[in-house]
Design a protein around this nucleic acid. Structure first.
Lengths: 324, 324
DNA sequence: AGTAAGATGGCAAGTATTAGAGAAGTAGCG
DNA sequence: CGCTACTTCTCTAATACTTGCCATCTTACT
């Protein structure tokens, strides 16, 4: 762990010269530069990032806050965010809130303490006020955190419409919506839009609510079994991917024919939706684009590159499958 | 962004006193302490972590290196690692190598530059020598990186045995193994053990190799289709979860009855293996324990709490399912 | 009252680096 | 030869915090 001082001594120059030689800033003669590089190599010198960070008051780290890393949507999201951040020279710190709002708060505090240069949050356990207290760069996915905090999300409303059209086309009459519990997120818009269209067309729509952002297959499965008991006569289900997959699984186990007797439409169209047979019919979010846009918006703020729009809505499409 | 100096001025004391008052070290009278705390609150003082890090020469960050965050095994692993690290007061930085060994190298460099206090690596694109150059804390999952680097993994050999026993019990005669491409990882042991037992019992075993640690469902699916064309008469498949799921999916599409005509056994038994119908029969790794053990081993090194064993092998069990 | 122990807090060094001021040296040109 | 311009490099301040050392003040005891 040689320091810049030792390198300077070894090369017989001052520390400033070493700094300039190695960073390529300011005047350094070719010979001295060579001498310094030799000394650096000899001593296995690597600059201490911590001192650098202190001076520049930045770490090049971005915090990414999600409710559950093991949920297919969030693992895909974080993966793409990480890769995009890497492209732009940043590192990714993750926070798996697991529904604990204290953890979300702690990451906000880390912003304050300069540990991270910015935050992308897709976890929504805190009140908007907590976020509004912050002045440093934050970008929110799928929930409006008020002024100064850009919001990125997909077009949930259109997704709900697409699903509704599909249900209508299949002449479904008694449809169930399984929605998430979080009250203030954009995801709810898809169910509102879905239900509105179906009701306008005389379809009976019922709604069940379940905790969705903690991924626990057992819970989904139990919920699906419960659903089939409580609603034996429904002919359509619209919900997030995982709940839809659980319903599909239970339907298959019970011998309910999908899609003949029951249409199931998911939302997200993440990897597992393609693994089952038949493939799940689902509204697809472009996670890759979502990640890219989120990162670029955040870095626009961090590096003050330009003004960013407060709200960015990305398109969705229907992933054809065999369940609707 | 008030600094400690401003707090000291506001409270009318020296900076050292503020530091000691807020950290609870050394003598500070109750009144001064109260005064300092009031000043700190008034100025919204939050200590700059960067300066702290520089002084202590640590960041409290652990780097976690995986080939693909969106692979169900790695997303589960990282999730549990993150949660365990959090419990112990550390933060998690992730690196999704995506098979690019340069990225793996860069994380090793970050160790050198003091950006992270230690590394847990489950990605294996670099030569052992690169790791041996390092003197700072590293823990490896599923690959032996030589002396000084603890190795954690599950009992792949036993997993292979369990699968082999199941194949024998089902009287399978022509079995295919789909293994990964990485030559030096422990995962290969499961296939060696599996094949050895089957061959000893007179079963024909063939082997196909595919790139496995980059998760791409399309590729798995294509590979599975190819497999069914090339080996139309096999009656057993043993492979990682995802390849197994792809084979199950193709089998169902082709009308091959599972498990009557074809036994499929996976390895890992991650979430998607439970989502399909019938549930995939698969060897289950205890990812949660794997994460816990990896973190504790690493932190033993980081904090020099105690000597750590060089090799830790965790038990596996068979997840019963409907495909074997 | 004098002394010593104990309490309290200020000062400055240390942490590794960068940037900017300025010193020292060289060369070109009139 | 002297002035200017330019190159080259050193030195110091600054970044924000922690901590050891020392100075000062209080209190109590003799």
């Amino acid at each position: 762990m040689a320091s810049i001082r030792e390198v300077a001594q070894e090369a017989g120059v001052g520390v400033g010269t070493v700094s300039r030689a190695l960073n390529g800033s300011g005047y350094v003669s070719p010979e001295t530069k060579k001498k310094i590089e030799k000394a650096a190599k000899k001593l296995h010198y690597t600059p201490n990032e911590l001192a650098r960070n202190l001076y520049h008051n930045r770490t090049g780290i971005v915090g990414v806050v999600v409710p559950d890393l093991d949920h297919p949507f969030f693992s895909a999201l974080v993966k793409h965010i990480e890769m995009e951040l890497y492209e732009q020279g940043y590192k990714t710190m993750i926070c798996n809130t697991a529904g604990i709002s204290r953890r979300e708060q702690e990451y906000l505090d880390m912003l304050e303490r300069n540990m991270v240069d910015g935050i992308i949050t897709a976890s929504h356990g805190l009140e908007v006020e907590e976020y509004q207290k912050q002045t440093k760069p934050i970008v929110s996915i799928d929930r409006d955190l008020g002024a100064r905090i850009p919001l990125i999300g997909c077009d949930h409303e259109k997704g709900g419409e697409l699903a509704a059209r599909l249900m209508l086309g299949a002449r479904r009459k008694k449809v169930l919506v399984i929605s998430g519990i979080a009250p203030k997120v954009m995801a709810n818009d898809r169910y509102t839009a879905f239900m509105k269209i179906l009701k306008e067309n005389g379809v009976t729509v019922q709604q069940e609510v379940m905790e969705w952002n903690i991924f626990n297959w057992e819970a989904y499965y139990k919920f699906a079994e419960e659903t089939f008991r409580s609603y034996p006569d429904i002919d359509g289900i619209f919900s997030g991917d995982l709940a839809a997959l659980a319903c599909l699984n239970v339907a298959q186990r019970r011998g309910v024919r999908v899609p003949e007797e029951l249409s199931i439409i998911g939302f997200d169209a993440m990897a597992p939706s393609s693994m089952v047979y038949p493939q799940l019919t689902a509204v697809r979010q472009n996670v890759e684009l979502l990640a890219e846009v989120s990162v670029n918006t955040l870095l626009d703020l961090v590096e003050q590159r330009k003004n960013v729009p407060h709200r960015l809505i990305l398109d969705v499409e229907m992933q054809p499958g065999g369940t609707a």
